[in-house]
Amino acid sequence: MSHDEPMRPRVLAIDDSDLVHRLLRARLRHERIDLHSVLTADEGIAAAKDLQPEVILLDIDLEDLDGFEVLARLKADPITRDIAVIFVSASNETMDRVRGLDLGAVDFVGKPFDVGELKARVRSALRMQRLVKMLAQRAQLDGLTGLWNRAYLDDRLEAETASAIRYGNPLSVVLCDLDRFKSLNDSYGHPFGDEVLERAASILGSGRSPDVACRYGGEEFALIAPGTDLKETMEVADRHRVRIAEIEWPDRPGVRISASFGVADLTCVSGTPTPEKLIAAADQALYEAKKAGRDQVVAANRQVWPRAAG
């Protein structure tokens, strides 16, 4: 997942009448959104998963399934839970509104639409959605370096491992530790130490687009390289190593920093791969790199492949 916002927010309308679809399309024509519309609850739930819209306009009285039931299902599924749902209904019953909001809808629009109100409510839902997303992302970013944090790394590595096993794709992990960081801090002070971390992070974070760079802790970083085997990841890590060693420090002539790297892929673990085993293998390799004199990339040992059936 990139840090960038998608260009146009997606809005999904679930309504059993194409008369309403056409109307929404006309009414929201000038909004900066991508409007998708489906006629049934089943299509709607499928499209919500598929499309991952920011906002859903959900008709309360659908023919095939009660709108409340659709909302409950959307809210029960982790994939669709965070989508902002606006209830749309010709019913003016207060109880219906209360029930919809209680089930997790963010808002309610009555039919027939008041154009200004419809637009304003869609915009407000989009605005809230953007803020929620930003907050969620912030909670997963490292404050100093702007890289993903450890919590995100854990989640993402878990997902990438499962997906690599399932589809038989390669997957590598790199652990990177800045060499003699403590003495840098001691000699030049913490502000300089922070600057070093930021510069190293910006190098690690500007690599190939599928790679996921995280701050693992202290002066240690991790890189997840989906779809990449050990050999190729070694090359990737070495390019990072060279760029870090080449950083110039105009205010501190003579200072050179370097980093050591440990790389492991799925062939370096025995038994069924897990995120913990991958990290442990990369960590062992990193230890070897330090022991061998730092400023280098070391691969974890390959385990016998194929693994025992299981």
Partner: peptide, 16 residues
């Protein structure tokens, strides 16, 4: 049901 939901939106409240 369809006319109830849509006619007002096309500006025909009495049909809705």
């Amino acid at each position: 049901h369809q006319l109830k939901g849509a006619a007002g939106g096309y500006g025909f409240d009495s049909i809705g």
